[in-house]
Design a protein around this nucleic acid. Structure first.
Length: 791
RNA sequence: GCCGAAGUGGCGGAACUGGUAGACGCGCCGGACUCAAAAUCCGGUUCCCUUCGGGGAGUGUGGGUUCGAAUCCCACCUUCGGCACCA
């Protein structure tokens, strides 16, 4: 008599066993010990505990990682699979403010909940390695690293224009401003000038375009490439006739230098305030304060003549210098040579202000009206012109980037304190290492108010200068939470180390991360920052690799009502209800069965019935097999072949193709076939195979059924291997085509030669009707598949 | 404008290197079991025509390559994503 399938009972039971056994605890190799060759670091982006619980997007993400983890472990890989919490940051802080509680309380409660949800879903996580960004044991090293970046001149303070979010009351990084709006809250950002800490990401601009030894999706690389915006060109010096000084321009079109008919400065260009006419200065002051968005949206070009002239270094032409807001100060040099004939914007400007136009490239792409450079193809011409300028010290080939340094100061409370002290005498001084971490104080009033909340806390702010001992002030800002997430994956590897952020030996053993799973929305932020961190650390000798993530996979969004689940929109569906009703195994299978994991999917629990039916059928069939099928383990026959085929498909899909929904379909086929032949001699083998292969997806029911079949400890049983000899078929279905159209199909012996296949094909009544008694012009034979007659 | 991804039944999707289009599941239809229902099981389900043997069309559109194209090539359409007065 088959007992009922009671998911909750068996799930609780096996979760306890795994916990007691420490089944998913994975120790590091001892220093100096010989290390396993095939190791695997499975990582999914760590969750923000800003919401009260996990949503189906998390479930998709972590279940994928879990399947990968189980299959690799059982295939003999040494697999580490940690978990932690991105606990600092705005969303967490804002959630706490909404609830009227201290962020720490809210966060720690949310972590509690999420951790228990994760355990309930049975994910094979090594909880011994758990870290959270808000724990002093973690942020001590975030601060230490921050100081290292400063020491290596990769982090610095300067005054500059920043994106200020008036709603969140803090600076926002360029990477997280979308269409002029704060990515977090949607408020329009303002430009402000402030003194801030910056990470010098631009120092690695070129190398960030390479992906040495990695397999990244082409779209992610494209997004980063666009963001970095590398463009090759030349810097050319123009002398100003009236002042005798030089102004540099950046151009990617040096070939059009002879076509320059005027010259334009950005309103913020220092030369304008220094030398331009009053009218031009007035325009510049006004134009410079217009919001960037408005400047970009303007339909008509505006500008004012400065009264000055620039001399074209190639031909001595005298060009009027204008100031106009279509030239941007923060790209290139903030000055351009205007070539109205070959640049759309310059053309528009010339038309608006009736300035001359000079064509210097003909229809064949060759230079004209360019003196001794005439006839040269454009590219060659550009090189020749730059070379000529270089000889005279008036120009040189350069590369320009759109990428800006990453601003990391935040005027908010809930983040990692910046470990620097401002002393009037000594300047900016690092907090001595033995005084780290600088503890984030518990304060009453942490609400955002335009100045950092910590600034009002005298006890925190007032400090002795570590150098001169005089009265000094702490830095009141906290770090962007993306500083935390730029290195958390290194800390997982050595999370209890209290002498260093991590030990190089173990980090070099596990990293780069073998497979990183997360949303594509972090392409220009987190993923770029992490690469920057690792490259820097490699340069300092802290790690032995230059890329953090060997392979990246982006899961699709799980949407509800057409948009990505989010707390602010209120369209969140979590796993709890479904797990209550059907169990964790059903939830895990269902989210992966919904479709290709890298495509967006609209959440609906409607199809879960199919998965539940499948699990019940598996349950029943395995019990029937255990009771009736011969126990001698025959591995030949139709069922055995199907089982072997399924092993091959599931393994290939998970390990090579990183595809998770098709293995479930393959397993359904196997179970469907098995359910019609539970008494067959090879039924036991097929049942064992099905249970073994379903284990990464549905570990609880698999473990239970494994004991029903008389075995133990499936989680550590070797992964099934397909018996190649059983994959060979004795017969196959021969497809016969005439002119590429299927006319007949029938079973034939797999051993038949090509000639025999053709002969059999020609015997077919249906085929003969189409051959019309004549000889085919041509006959194509595809072994093991088909015969095609061309008539 | 530049860069990237994608278009297949009522729905989610499968078909990996060109070789039987629609696996698997949902939904729907019919049947068995049942007093009834649930659960379970069996069968059907791309569209059109059919004398029920089968025939024709069909993977966004139009061309092309090929014995053979969802798959390769060209052009276009649509949707989504990134960059963008970036010189």
């Amino acid at each position: 008599m088959t007992p009922r399938y009671e998911p909750h009972e068996i799930e609780t039971k096996w979760q306890r066993v795994w916990e007691d056994e420490g089944a998913f605890r994975v120790p590091n190799p001892a220093p100096g010990a010989p290390t396993a060759e095939s190791h695997w670091y499975q990582l999914e982006m760590l969750p923000y505990p800003s919401g009260p619980s996990l949503h189906m997007g998390h479930v998709l993400n972590y279940t994928m990682g879990d399947v990968q983890t189980h299959v690799r472990r059982r295939s003999g890989w040494h697999v580490v699979r940690p978990m932690g919490w991105d606990a600092f940051g705005l969303p967490a802080e804002n959630a706490a403010i909404r609830e009227g509680r201290h962020p720490r309380e809210t966060i720690e409660r949310n972590i509690e909940t999420m951790r228990s949800q994760m355990k309930r879903l049975g994910w094979a996580i090594d909880w011994d390695r758990e870290v959270s960004a808000h724990q002093p044991t973690f942020y001590r090293w975030t601060q230490w690293l921050f100081q290292q970046f400063v020491a290596h001149d990769l982090c610095y303070r300067r005054e500059g224009p920043v994106n200020w979010c008036p709603n969140d009351q803090t600076v926002v990084a360029n990477e997280y401003v979308v269409d002029g709006r704060c990515e977090r809250c949607g408020a329009e950002v303002e430009l402000r000038t402030m003194t801030q800490w910056y990470m010098r990401t631009t120092a690695y601009a070129d190398e960030l375009l390479e992906y040495e030894g990695t397999e990244w999706p082409s779209r992610t690389r494209a997004i980063q490439r666009n963001w970095i915006g590398r463009s090759e060109g030349a810097e050319i010096l123009f002398r100003v006739e009236e002042t005798g000084g030089d102004i540099a321009v950046f151009t990617t079109r040096a070939d059009t230098l002879f076509g320059a008919t005027f010259f334009v400065l950005a309103p913020e260009h220092p030369f304008v305030a220094a030398h331009a006419s009053e009218e031009a200065k007035q325009y510049a002051r006004h134009a410079g304060t217009r919001p960037v968005e408005e400047r970009a949206a303007a339909t008509k070009k505006t500008g004012v003549f400065t009264g000055l002239h620039a001399i074209n270094p190639i031909d001595g032409e005298r060009l009027p210098i204008w100031v106009a807001d279509y030239v941007l100060m923060d790209y290139g040099t903030g000055a351009i040579m205007a070539v109205p004939a070959h640049d759309e914007r310059d053309g528009e400007f010339a038309e608006t202000f009736t300035l001359p136009t000079k064509v210097v490239i003909d229809e064949d792409g060759k230079l004209v009206n360019s003196g001794r450079f005439d006839e040269l193809p454009a590219e060659e011409g550009a090189r020749a012109i730059v070379a000529a300028l270089e000889e005279e010290g008036r120009g040189q080939a350069t590369v320009n980037y759109r990428l800006r340094d990453w601003s990391v100061s935040r005027q908010r409370y809930w983040g990692c304190p910046i470990p620097f002290i401002h002393c009037e005498k000594c300047g900016v001084v690092p907090v001595p290492e033995d005084q780290l971490p600088v503890i984030l104080p518990d304060i009453e009033d942490y609400a955002p108010k335009g100045r950092p909340p910590l600034a009002a806390n005298e006890e925190y702010m007032s400090v002795d200068c570590p150098q001169c001992g005089g009265a000094a002030r702490r830095d009141p800002d906290t770090m962007d939470t993306f500083v935390d997430s730029s290195w958390y994956f290194l800390r997982y590897i050595d999370s209890h180390n209290d002498e260093a952020p991590f030990d190089r030996f173990v980090v070099d053993y596990w990293l780069p991360v073998s497979q990183y799973i997360g949303g594509i929305d972090h392409s220009t932020g987190h993923l770029l920052y992490s690469r920057f961190f690792v490259k820097a650390m490699n340069d300092w000798g802290m790690v032995g690799f230059r890329e953090p993530f060997a392979r990246v996979f982006h899961q699709g969004w799980v949407t509800l009502g057409g948009s990505k689940m989010s707390k602010t929109k209120g369209n969140v569906a979590g796993p709890d209800e479904l797990a209550d009703e059907y169990g964790a195994d059903a939830v895990r299978l269902y989210i992966l069965f919904m479709g290709p994991a890298d495509q967006d999917m609209e959440w609906t629990p409607d199809g879960v019935e199919g998965i539940v039916r499948f699990l019940r059928r598996l349950w029943r069939v395995v019990h029937e097999v255990a009771g009736s099928a011969p126990a001698d383990g025959v591995r030949e026959g139709a069922l055995a072949r199907k089982a072997n085929e399924t092993i091959a498909r599931v393994t290939d899909d998970v390990l090579r193709r990183f595809q998770f929904h098709t293995p479930i379909a393959a397993l359904m086929e196997l179970v469907n076939e098995l359910s019609g032949a539970v008494g067959a001699p090879d039924a036991r083998f097929a049942a064992e195979t099905a249970v073994s292969l379903i284990q990464p997806y549905a570990p609880h029911v698999a473990e239970e059924l494994w004991t029903v079949l008389g075995h133990e400890r499936l989680w550590e049983a070797p992964w099934s291997e397909a018996d190649e000899s059983q994959l060979v078929r004795e017969t196959f279905e021969l497809v016969v085509q005439v002119n590429g159209r299927v006319r007949d199909r029938f079973e034939v012996d797999a051993g038949l030669s090509e000639e025999e296949l053709v002969a059999r094909a020609r015997e077919s009544e249906r085929v003969r009707a189409y051959l019309d008694g004549g000889e085919p012009r041509k006959t194509i034979v595809v072994p093991k598949k088909l015969v095609n007659f061309v008539v």
